[in-house]
């Protein structure tokens, strides 16, 4: 933990808890998205795309490992990255609900990825300036990866949007389907507010403005329509998920759950 937080956290239990929650949100989002992308490996539309999607998955799993390791240290209960990834149930996961949505077709995966990438771009860019030096270092590394992810996903968004009548229709449908999960990306709660107050995390409203402009520009380039904002009943970052996450975790955690205490 950084000096700034260590100094602040000891007397302020609530801040400490908020930081833990904040880091888990970031880590769980990368983990669940990486897990989803892992489902693609071997099944992509071309061999080259197979390698590309695997690279995204690897980066995201890597980010999750750094973030969950850090979360375990903040928590101080000797839980490492695997204890956190494999031995928590859905309500204890705090990823954004967008990350857990099923892969669907390639267009749906691209739209989900593009929405997540453009979100991570804003968050990681700001987190580089975080007063929490550990988080700033992780963000600096992750940002490089995210820039490439965004290049990949926004490129495909334009190809599919502009390509054929079928691809246009499929990718617009995916945008329409997934849009309802974007409300959560910038909905600030007391955890976010605490992080902003001590300079650990950026204000989400600023990030949202940048994100929105970027997304509009990409949608225009892909000749796609931006759906209307929709109120959302999912609060993945508060542990309230769609039904999909349970299945993701059941599959991911099954060996650890079946053989308690075994080393792998």
């Amino acid at each position: 933990m950084s000096r700034a937080v260590a100094a602040a956290a000891r007397p302020d239990r609530a801040l400490h808890e908020a930081l833990l929650r904040y880091v888990l949100r970031l880590g769980d989002t990368s983990l669940v998205l990486g897990q989803r992308l892992g489902e693609w490996v071997g099944h992509a539309p071309t061999l080259e795309e197979d390698l590309g999607l695997a690279n995204l998955a690897l980066d995201l799993i890597g980010q999750a490992r750094l973030l969950l390791t850090y979360a375990g240290e903040i928590e101080g209960r000797e839980r490492d990255e695997d204890a956190l990834a494999y031995l928590r149930d859905a309500p204890e996961f705090f990823n954004l609900a967008l990350a857990e949505q099923p892969n669907g077709d390639f267009g749906c995966t691209i739209v989900r990825q593009w929405l997540m990438d453009s979100w991570q771009l804003e968050i990681y860019t700001s987190l580089q300036e975080s007063t929490d030096s550990r988080l700033a270092a992780i963000a600096a590394k992750a940002l490089k990866e995210t820039r490439y992810h965004y290049r990949f996903s926004s490129g495909w968004l334009v190809r599919l949007g502009d390509g054929t009548a079928e691809s246009h229709e499929r990718v617009q449908r995916a945008v329409d389907e997934l849009w309802r999960f974007t409300g959560e990306l910038f909905a600030a709660d007391e955890v976010d507010e605490r992080m902003v107050a001590v300079g650990i995390a950026p204000p989400l409203s600023t990030a949202e403005a940048h994100w929105s402009a970027r997304v509009d520009e990409d949608l225009r380039a892909a000749s796609l329509k931006r759906p209307a904002a929709q109120p959302y009943p999912w609060h993945g970052k508060r542990g309230v998920h769609t039904e999909h996450l349970g299945y993701v975790l059941a599959e991911m955690q099954h060996l650890q759950r079946t053989y308690p205490g075994a080393r792998w």
Binding site: T46, E48, L51, G52, R151, F152, R159
Partner: peptide
């Protein structure tokens, strides 16, 4: 070598395939 639909994709594929 590799297959790609356009130049931008060719660079991305080259990166993903040949610089891992």
């Amino acid at each position: 070598s590799l297959h790609a639909a356009d130049a931008r994709m060719a660079i991305e594929h080259a990166r993903d395939v040949y610089t891992r």
